[in-house]
Amino acid sequence: MSLPGVCVVYLLRRGPGGTEVLLGDKRTGLGQGKVVGIGGKLDHGESAEEAAVREVEEEIGVRIEASALHLAGTIDYHFPTRPAWSQRSTVFVCRRFQGVPVETAEITPRWYALDAVPYPRMWDDASRWLPGVLRGGTVDARFTFGSDLSTVVLTAV
């Protein structure tokens, strides 16, 4: 069974204290109330790169080019008690973009220093792989969430 495709982009910039990552307070839909990366579902026939470019512009008003995306890996998310939430996420990092992030109905964007990423406010899996990706690494993992729909109960890396 193939999982529905989604993408997530972590924009990085040089801040006063070092590298910063753009995350957002999710205002609607899956993950509402959590701090998340910028991204969303792939439209039918759309590549992960095309979706990443579109989603970043739709969610925060920033323009990126597919050539600026660095593929950092893929993650399969399984929700046995809510199968409609299961998905395969393509993870990108991007250091070149145009524009200033703006709040939209979907997301309230905010820059965080890498040592101040609010992992307790993110999905449970993020602290297990995101620090490495933000420092230039890659991820290839599978996470299964428990019946509470928020706690990782099984990890395969």
Rank of each mutant, 00 (worst) to 15 (best):
H70D: 15
G132W: 02
Y112L: 00
V102W: 04
P118D: 03
P83T: 10
Q87Y: 13
A52S: 14
D43M: 13
E55M: 14
E55V: 01
L23Q: 10
A116I: 02
R13N: 06
L71V: 12
L30G: 00
L42G: 09
L71M: 11
P80T: 08
E57Q: 14
V139G: 04
L12F: 00
G40F: 08
D140N: 09
V93S: 03
F79E: 02
V36W: 00
R88W: 12
D115E: 12
L11H: 08
E57R: 15
E46G: 06
T74C: 11
W129Y: 15
R95P: 00
E50G: 15
Y77I: 03
D76T: 04
L71W: 15
G132P: 05
A141Q: 02
T108N: 11
R110T: 13
G29M: 01
V133L: 10
A141G: 03
P131V: 05
Y77T: 05
I60W: 11
R13C: 05
L114Y: 02
A48T: 07
K26R: 15
W111D: 10
A68T: 14
E103T: 14
E50I: 01
R13S: 03
I75H: 09
T19I: 05
W123D: 14
R128G: 00
I60T: 08
W123K: 07
P118K: 00
F79W: 12
P101I: 02
L30T: 09
E46W: 02
P16R: 13
G132I: 04
L22G: 03
T108Q: 14
E106Q: 08
A52G: 08
Y119W: 05
G136S: 12
V21E: 03
P109W: 09
L114S: 02
W129L: 06
S67Y: 03
T90L: 03
P131K: 05
G40R: 04
Q87P: 00
W129Q: 06
L130C: 12
E59A: 13
V133N: 09
L114E: 01
G99T: 11
V102N: 06
R63F: 07
P83L: 06
V21S: 02
S47W: 14
E57L: 10
C94E: 00
M122A: 10
L42W: 11
A52W: 04
S67R: 15
V100Q: 15
E20A: 02
E50T: 04
G61A: 11
P118L: 01
V56E: 03
V93P: 01
L23E: 08
A48M: 05
R88E: 15
G37W: 08
T90G: 05
D25Q: 14
Y77W: 09
G136C: 09
G31R: 06
G17D: 05
R14T: 14
S89M: 13
H44G: 01
